[in-house]
Structure formats: C-alpha cells, structure tokens
Nucleic acid binder design. Structure first.
Lengths: 228, 228
DNA sequence: TCCCACAAACCGACCGGTTGGTCTAGTATT
DNA sequence: AATACTAGACCAACCGGTCGGTTTGTGGGA
C-alpha cells in the first residue's frame, strides 16, 4: 500500500468503492443483457445472471430495485449503442441513402451484424416478447422504432432533394416498409436457422430499393461503389 | 378376431366416454392455444390452462404426455387451419396473384385477421420465441414457412405464365420478401399497438407489389376488382 | 333383462425444484 | 466511526409433473 498514492486518489475524488461498485454494475448490465438475449426477459434467471456477473443477490439489489429495472437498463444500454453505430450515424452521414441501406443490409446477410443467427436480433426479440406485456419496455422499444424510421425517412428525403431518390414515393411509408422487411427477414433467418433465406429475401429487397432510385441514376451492387 | 362382428361393434361403438374425452381434449387444446397466444409457450401456466379448460391435472396428463406435446398439438391444430384458409387456399385458387396478395394484406391492415392487435400473430410469436429453443417447434414452424413461401411463389409463377406478372423477377425471392415484409409489418403493429404504422408500411408495400405486374396490366386498388 | 368386471376418464393433493425478492451480517475504504 | 458495497441464507409463490384413488359407461355373460 504505497501511501503516497492514496492522497492522490482522494484528491481526484476517485472513490475506490465507487469504482468497484460501478464495475459490478456494468458486469451486471452485461450479464443481464446476454441472459435476456439468449432466453428472453421473462425466462432470464437472476441467479444465472449473478453467476455470469460473478456477484450475488445482495449486490444486484443494491444497484437495482428489481428485475424490471435491471432488464430495462441492460436493454437501453446496449440497444442505444447498437442503433447509433449500425443505423443512425451511417444514415445521417450518408450522401447516398439507397447505397447506405444496401450496405447495412448486406452486412446483416453476411452475418457481420448478428453475432449468432440462432439468437436473432435483440431489438426484435424484445419487441416481440415484451410489447404486449410491459408498457415501460414497449414505450422504449417503440421509441427506438420511431428514431429508426425517422432516420431512414430523413435520409430518403435528403436523397429526394439531391435528385437521387424518386420523388413520387412517400419517404415515411418507404422507411416503414424497409424496417418491416428488414425485421421480417431477420425473423425468417432465425426460424430457418440459416442465412440462405435471408439472401433470398434480400435478392428481392435489393431490387426494390434500387427501384427507389431516380431513373438513370447508377445502381451499384451492394458490395461495391459505396465504401467512400 | 371375429371379422363379422367387428364392423358391427365398430358401428355401434359410439362410446359416450370417448366423445366426452374428445371434448375435454379439444377444450384443452383450445385453452392451451389461448394461453400460449397470450403469454407465450414458456410462460403459459398449466394451471391456468386447466382453469380455462375446466378440468384438472389428471385429465391433462391422461390426454398428453407433457406440456411440450400439449403446446405443439395446440399450435399445429390452430396454425394449420389458419394458414389454409387465410393464405394457401386463396392463393391456390387465385387467377390474379398480385390482387389476391393485396387483398389478404389489406384485410390484415383492416384488423380483420388479427383478432387482437396487442397479441400479434401467433405464428410469428411462436417462431420468435421457440425457434431458438426447441427443435420440434422450430421444425414445424419452419415447415409452415416453407409451405407459405411455396404457395406464394407458385402463385407468382402462375401469374408469370399468364403474363400478369413480370418475368424478370425471381418468384422465390419475391415470395420470401413478401413474407418477410408481412411478418415485419405485423411485428411493427404489435410494438406500436396501433394499425396506423401498418397502413404506412402497406402504402409502400402496395406500390412494390403492383410494380411486379407486367407494364400495361391494370393495377386495381386493394379494395376493388378482385372479389370475383 | 340384469349385472358386473374392466378400463377410459377424471380428480386433486402432493413433489422437488426454481423463481424473484428480502434481510441481516460482514467487509473494505475513507 | 461512517458509509458504500457485498455476501448468501432464507422466503413465499409458483412451476411442471406424479400418483393413488374415484367416477363413469359399456360390452359380454348369465
């Protein structure tokens, strides 16, 4: 115990207890998310979460009032980050919305986004399980959908203004359908336990998305011409 | 084995016990389906099912070996019938696949198919919950998806032969995407607890489906011109 | 026609196990 | 000493499933 270091920690106000507490909190969030992702919220066992997080009931109920709060926090923590990096940011920065969408979707089909096909998309799993059961979860998940829809619609509108996207379609309606088709495809993949069916769905989806381009606008394949 | 008597016995063999047994069996299947539809398979309580069916544990385990068998039987019983009347038969009898599809989808948006928006589509709920968990359920549900996909693809191919549907698209891919989009839309409706978003998705979906028609082919609205 | 053996159908108390959640005792840091 | 944190025994409620026993109706022998 080097005593010279101790005061420094104190001066910084870095309470070692708080640090440790924060670490177990994070461990709990992570373990909870994994458990929920694997088994769903209702079937997620607190004991299993504790085992994975390496702590005990006492710790859990010190940091969270109940299972509901733990689950919601774990979901929010993870989904917010995922949506931001995978969808919202790329779309906001895009100069060619159709190509950006094709790119994101292709990465799903390639299995680069969903770590495990069998588990499906956490957002979809949770929406499916909880939206009819718990209003807090539902409100949050629906909000995510809204953000998502708005991000796609905005990108499409921007594309319309730039003359890349046909103006005779409703950006909102197209955005809604794009989300529906994407979510539906992920669901099919999960049930089939195979990405083949996803590729089949994407084949038609690819044609549809390209049909949204203004005539004469180039239609690069999903794997090329959009890395810039 | 007196062969002359058997037919007589068989004919007389209207055993009242068997009839009653069959009735409670049906009651169990129905109650089980409702419970599973509401709470999912894993959260479906046998005691609640028994309460709804008006019988006891003993009866249940006389008719079914375990919860798994009961659940599967209830699902098969219901989903098979639903798929046949809602999708397979109309598509097989259709002379205009695109219009038939639009009609079926419109009826979903109008809330005529899903009895309760909040509960979502049983097929989707189960696929989502069980396909990563139980191989028996998954195999069955995946088979249903295959039937569904084949029915749509066949109808589209028939339309291609008849010159109503564009020949430059893959009927299989289009069928897969149609299912995905439909399932995804139902999922969105469930999360939003409102059919508005379904109408939005359908607006774009409607355009897409009509784009599959051969150019020059009439594009009647979803509500007219396809009742014949 | 009567009667009874027999089995299908049904009953519900009970079982071990698991669930989410509580509570008290104790530890480590300031 | 004060306080944030952790530990884990414990709890009632509920889970799916078991089991010994009762009811019910029927077919075959007398």
């Amino acid at each position: 115990m080097p005593e010279t270091l101790k005061p420094i920690q104190a001066e910084k106000g870095e309470d070692a207890r708080q640090i440790r507490g924060e670490r177990t909190r994070q461990a709990l969030l992570e373990a909870a998310f994994d458990e929920i992702h694997q088994h769903g919220y209702r079937s997620a066992s607190l004991n299993d979460i504790l085992k994975a997080a390496g702590c005990t009931k006492g710790s859990l109920y010190h940091h969270f009032p109940d299972k509901h709060a733990l689950g919601l926090a774990a979901i929010v923590d993870n989904v917010d980050r995922f949506m931001g990096t995978t969808w919202l940011r790329p779309l906001a920065q895009s100069t060619d919305p159709i190509s950006t969408l094709l790119d994101i979707l292709q990465r799903h089909v390639d299995g680069e986004v969903l770590c495990d096909v069998r588990l499906g998309c956490p957002l979809q799993n949770l929406s499916q399980e909880m939206s009819g059961l718990d209003e807090d979860f539902r409100t949050y998940l629906n909000g995510i959908h809204e953000q998502w829809r708005t991000a796609i619609a905005d990108a499409l509108r921007k594309g319309q203004d730039a003359g890349q996207v046909r103006k005779d379609i409703s950006a909102e309606a197209a955005a809604t359908m794009i989300i529906a088709t994407h979510q539906g495809t992920v669901g099919l993949i999960k049930t089939a336990q195979s990405t083949d069916i996803g590729a089949s769905s994407f084949e038609a989806f690819y044609q549809y998305l390209n049909s949204l381009r203004t005539t004469g606008n180039s239609t690069p394949g999903p794997k090329e011409g959009l890395t810039s």
